[in-house]
Design a protein around this nucleic acid. Sequence first.
DNA 1: TCCTTTAGTAAAGCTTACAAACTAAATACC
DNA 2: GGTATTTAGTTTGTAAGCTTTACTAAAGGA
Lengths: 385, 385
Amino acid sequence: MSERPPASTSPATRWLGKGSTTQPLVPSDARSHHRSLVLQALYRGRGLSRADLSRDLGLSRVTISDVVADLVDEDFVVELGTRPASRPGKPATMLDVNREGHHIIGLDLSGLHSFVGVVTDLAGEVIHRAAVDIPRAQGEDAIVAAETLLAELVELAHRPVIGVGVGSPGIVDDRGVVLSAPNFGWRDVPLQARLATASGLPVAVANDADTAVVGEFSFGDGQPDMMLVRIGRGVGSGLMIDGRTVSGARHAAGEIGHVVSGTDDGELCVCGNRGCLERWLAIPRIDERLADPAADRHAVLTEAGRRLGIVLAPIVSALNLTEVVLAGPADTISGPLLTAAQSTMRDRMLPDSHGDMQLRMTELGPDLVLLGAVVLVLRGQLGVA
Amino acid sequence: MSERPPASTSPATRWLGKGSTTQPLVPSDARSHHRSLVLQALYRGRGLSRADLSRDLGLSRVTISDVVADLVDEDFVVELGTRPASRPGKPATMLDVNREGHHIIGLDLSGLHSFVGVVTDLAGEVIHRAAVDIPRAQGEDAIVAAETLLAELVELAHRPVIGVGVGSPGIVDDRGVVLSAPNFGWRDVPLQARLATASGLPVAVANDADTAVVGEFSFGDGQPDMMLVRIGRGVGSGLMIDGRTVSGARHAAGEIGHVVSGTDDGELCVCGNRGCLERWLAIPRIDERLADPAADRHAVLTEAGRRLGIVLAPIVSALNLTEVVLAGPADTISGPLLTAAQSTMRDRMLPDSHGDMQLRMTELGPDLVLLGAVVLVLRGQLGVA
DNA sequence: TCCTTTAGTAAAGCTTACAAACTAAATACC
DNA sequence: GGTATTTAGTTTGTAAGCTTTACTAAAGGA
């Protein structure tokens, strides 16, 4: 046992206490937390009784009864009648979320030619759809188009609307301001505030890829440590770590389109680099290559997938993700491209670490962002999903 | 405005409500939260009064007085006397964390030849050091060595010890079980429980890289969205996102040593792949190359740095990190290697996104893991740092 | 000297949760 | 069939924790 010489000067005199000064926690925070827990449990398993909730959540029957009474008053929870008694004791009164009693509006602003929107119930079941064409809409015009679409959806909803979720392209901060969206020429557009004022409803705005990832998580088979890659005109992604989306220090997490893939150059990209992932993988680029009559479709798609795998391997390893989900046109993505991405990624990681790693297509199709927008509302307003 | 055709079958019938059923929130949780807020604020700025705390934290003066009274009773906070009055009104009584009143023990089990440990005060100031040699210690022997070192440090501490923090190599789960640590032949070793039983103190165990990253965050200049790369016998990393460490779905986050860097092959690695990062960057590998009399030192180090940059670019882009910190032998790392890593990384990312990105060496030197271990205790026991 | 300002404490009241006791309604058992 | 047992849910009383209001202490300013 040897005494190590003490360091010349202690480095520990710098500073401590950077933990973000979080909000105080008032009693009513506990109440809303418990409301969320109850709703969460009811969403997950139908036909739970107050006593079941008490056991599952670790709160007393009294408290559960109280919370449930509030939720019933607000029409978020309904009684389903008594459970057929099999054991001794008074039969339980089953509860469920009142899935049809309220509506949610979801907007997807990431389309190329139109903004689309839905009215759903609390289960995410689509009740109405609407869309508005946006031929080269820019700036204020694009904002007005979104407001118009929202107004139309509000008219369609025939139940109280608990909130509006919006997936928007561009970089969106945590207060729903679109810091930049080149497509629309938006800079610092307070989209959340604009839509909230226009509709008088609670509005949540997030980046489209981040919206998609919560959609996949809640309505798809998405796991809590997951990456969702959207392949379309460009390539973007949303990350979920331990069930939370990652927005990044400058709200720009998931921007992998202009990462260089490989060390053998590639085509020149508008960003100035060579071999950007987008240059290999964006749908227009792939289509260009496939348009060449001499092109080998399988080879083109395999190479695109390989380039994706090269970029994914370090990310998946570093974050120890269990799942990467691809979203985009299935006819292009879900063949050799997917296979090549998967094998490339595995070949470039420690074999142990991809034992249960999965790379797959989303099964939610074109409604992914819309469903994610609905989830934004469920999370924000009810603390569910 | 065109109505989109409804999807054939709604995908929204799958399932919702995956949000982890979190714990209920009892009143005492609020109290401990507020204790943390108070301690946090006092750590950050010295000489705050109860009234200052009330204003800063948004809690009433009454509540602050109550919380502070508890903390004074427990000797975690002391009054410093009244502030020289410049304004009208009763002069304030300044408070501070009682930095010398309690001790913390930190252990670093990641050394090649010895386990090292420190006793610090609540400011992280090192009071005592100790170490124990571990010539090829394996299995139970290594555990006993750690227990012995801990016992020695407990003897050295002359104030109440609020807890023990441990940075261990290998994969460590969130209850302090070392799932695997090849160095010691450990599998599923309940290190936290072993040390807690042996010492009778609260013990927190984490992976050494994760420990380092919290050390850098709290005692260094580390930012909340940061990656810390430890370069030594191997290459590992710890990630911090929004002030929280990332442990990964299987507790294996940060394992980037065996990610392939580049698409031009490289040397064969023990893991079976070619061109693993570790093969380029681990200190023994670099030393091997530099030992060749014909080697160009600058070229060797530049190439190592370049390989690091290639792996970092996708990770930094995807997570929108603001900082990557390197830890390891400065004479090797902090020259051409660092420069090459930085420029390579930047060249492979969207120019916008690295505007405020920084790649630098840690300034905490060899005590990084030890200080991180201390932070584990500050976080766990006091909710600070 | 008296007013104003600020710090800190005391008392009362609100919200929330829990424990204990109670009612309701079923099965189990003799 | 009647009583015991079990389970569901509510009523009642109590404790913890926060806030508001009111109070005392101690300073400067007019």
